Deep mutational scan, measured.
Amino acid sequence: DETGKELVLVLYDYQEKSPREVTIKKGDILTLLNSTNKDWWKIEVNDRQGFVPAAYLKKLD
């Protein structure tokens, strides 16, 4: 059920640097789980959840 889920576009590649982070690729469109922290957003990638720098993402309307 995708209702109410926010999507984000990945602006730059990011390689995870800790187990709490996930790797993302430029151009991916992913589900945003939590954006309350202005610097690190929690997203879902391939059934994995983790954090990436918010500056690497853009919210889609």
Rank of each mutant, 00 (worst) to 15 (best):
Asp13Trp: 03
Thr31Gly: 07
Leu9Gly: 02
Tyr14Phe: 06
Glu2Asn: 15
Lys58Asp: 05
Lys17Asp: 06
Asn37Thr: 06
Ala54Lys: 06
Thr23Gly: 04
Asn34Met: 08
Val10His: 00
Tyr12Lys: 15
Pro19Gly: 08
Glu21Pro: 05
Thr31His: 11
Asp13Cys: 05
Tyr56Cys: 10
Glu16Ser: 15
Val10Arg: 00
Thr23Asn: 05
Lys25Ile: 10
Ala54Tyr: 03
Val22Asn: 02
Leu33Asp: 01
Tyr12Met: 13
Thr36Asn: 12
Asp39Asn: 13
Trp40Ala: 02
Val45Cys: 11
Phe51Asp: 04
Lys26Ala: 13
Thr3Leu: 13
Val45His: 13
Glu21Lys: 04
Gly27Asp: 06
Asp61Gly: 15
Tyr56Ala: 10
Val52Thr: 02
Thr31Arg: 15
Ala54Met: 05
Arg20Gln: 12
Lys5Pro: 12
Glu16Thr: 08
Tyr12Ala: 14
Lys38Ala: 13
Gly27Asn: 06
Asn46Ala: 14
Asp61Asn: 15
Asp28Met: 15
Asn34Phe: 07
Asn37Ser: 10
Leu57Asp: 01
Lys38Asp: 09
Leu9Val: 10
Glu16Gly: 13
Val22Gly: 02
Tyr56Thr: 08
Val10Ile: 03
Glu2Val: 13
Pro19Ser: 11
Ile29Phe: 05
Val52Pro: 01
Pro19Arg: 08
Glu6His: 15
Gly27Val: 01
Gln49Ala: 10
Val22Ile: 09
Val45Leu: 09
Ile29Met: 06
Leu9Ala: 05
Pro53Met: 03
Tyr14Gly: 00
Leu7Lys: 14
Trp40Val: 03
Asn37Phe: 08
Leu7Ile: 07
Val8Ser: 02
Glu44Gln: 13
Ile29Thr: 06
Pro19Gln: 09
Ala55Val: 12
Gln15Val: 14
Val10Ser: 04
Leu32Val: 07
Lys38Gly: 09
Gly4Ser: 13
Ile24Lys: 00
Tyr14Met: 01
Val45Ser: 09
Asn34Lys: 07
Asn46Pro: 06
Arg20Leu: 14
Asp39Thr: 15
Gly50Met: 07
Glu2Lys: 12
Ser18Tyr: 07
Pro19Asp: 12
Asn46Tyr: 14
Val8Thr: 03
Lys42Tyr: 15
Leu60Ala: 04
Trp40Arg: 03
Asn37Asp: 14
Asn37Lys: 06
Thr36Trp: 08
Glu6Leu: 13
Arg20Met: 12
Ile43Gln: 00
Asp47Ile: 06
Lys58Phe: 09
Gly4Arg: 15
Trp41Val: 02
Trp40Cys: 06
Ile43Arg: 00
Asp39Met: 15
Leu60Gln: 05
Asp13Ala: 07
Leu9Asp: 01
Leu33Asn: 02
Asp47Trp: 07
Gln49Pro: 05
Asn46Lys: 12
Glu2Trp: 12
Ser18Val: 05
Arg20Ser: 11
Gly4Ala: 15
Val22Thr: 04
Glu16Leu: 08
Gln49Tyr: 07
Leu7Arg: 14
Thr36Ile: 08
Val8Glu: 00
Ser35Ala: 12
Asp1Phe: 13
Pro53Thr: 01
Trp40Thr: 02
Leu57Glu: 00
Asp47Ala: 09
Gln15Thr: 14
Phe51Asn: 03
Asp13Val: 02
Asp1Ser: 13
Lys17Val: 08
Pro53Trp: 04
Leu9Ser: 04
Leu9Met: 09
Thr31Pro: 15
Arg20Tyr: 14
Leu30Glu: 04
Val10Glu: 00
Lys5Ala: 09
Asn46His: 13
Lys26Asn: 05
Trp41Lys: 00
Ala54Thr: 05
Asn46Cys: 12
Lys59Trp: 06
Trp40Asn: 02
Glu21Tyr: 04
Leu9Gln: 07
Gly50Arg: 04
Ile24Cys: 08
Tyr12His: 14
Val45Ile: 12
Trp41Tyr: 04
Asp47Glu: 13
Trp41Ile: 02
Gln15Phe: 15
Glu44Pro: 01
Ile43Thr: 02
Lys59Met: 08
Asp61Gln: 11
Val52Tyr: 01
Gly27Glu: 02
Leu32Trp: 01
Leu33Met: 07
Leu30Gln: 06
Asp39Glu: 13
Leu7His: 12
Lys42Ile: 12
Lys5Ile: 13
Lys58Gln: 11
Arg48Gly: 05
Gly4Lys: 15
Asn46Gln: 14
Ile24Ser: 01
Asn34Ile: 07
Thr3Tyr: 14
Ala55Asn: 11
Arg48Leu: 06
Gly27Cys: 08
Ile43Pro: 00
Trp41Gln: 00
Arg48Trp: 08
Trp40His: 03
Leu32Ser: 02
Lys26Thr: 07
Leu11Trp: 03
Asp13Ile: 02
Asp39Ala: 12
Lys59Tyr: 07
Ser18Arg: 10
Asp61Thr: 14
Val22Tyr: 03
Glu2Cys: 14
Tyr12Phe: 13
Glu21Trp: 04
Lys26Ser: 07
Asp39Pro: 02
Lys42Phe: 15
Lys5Val: 12
Pro19Cys: 08
Tyr14Asn: 00
Leu32Cys: 09
Ile43Phe: 00
Tyr12Asn: 09
Glu6Thr: 15
Gln49Met: 09
Leu57His: 00
Val52Leu: 01
Tyr14His: 03
Glu21Gly: 11
Tyr56Asn: 09
Glu44Asn: 06
Thr23Pro: 03
Lys25Ser: 09
Pro19Phe: 07
Asn46Phe: 14
Lys42Ser: 06
Glu21Ser: 06
Ile43Tyr: 01
Trp40Ser: 03
Val52Ile: 03
Glu44Ser: 09
Val8Asp: 00
Arg48Gln: 07
Lys42Trp: 10
Thr3Cys: 14
Lys5Trp: 10
Trp41Ser: 02
Gly4Asp: 11
Thr3Ala: 13
Ile43Ser: 00
Lys58Leu: 14
Ile29Arg: 05
Lys58Ile: 11
Tyr12Trp: 12
Leu9Asn: 02
Lys38Leu: 09
Lys59Arg: 15
Leu11Gln: 04
Glu2Leu: 13
Lys17Leu: 09
Glu6Met: 14
Trp41His: 02
Lys17Gln: 15
Leu32Phe: 02
Phe51Tyr: 14
Val10Lys: 00
Glu44His: 07
Lys58Pro: 01
Trp40Pro: 00
Arg48Ala: 06
Thr31Glu: 09
Val45Ala: 12
Lys38Val: 11
Val22Glu: 01
Lys42Ala: 08
Thr36Ser: 14
Glu44Trp: 08
Lys58Trp: 09
Ser35Gly: 10
Gly4Trp: 13
Lys42Pro: 00
Lys42Arg: 10
Glu21Thr: 06
Gln15Asp: 12
Leu57Cys: 07
Lys26Tyr: 05
Glu16Arg: 12
Lys5Asn: 09
Asn34Ser: 13
Asp39Gly: 09
Val45Asp: 08
Ala55Ile: 11
Thr36Tyr: 09
Arg48Tyr: 05
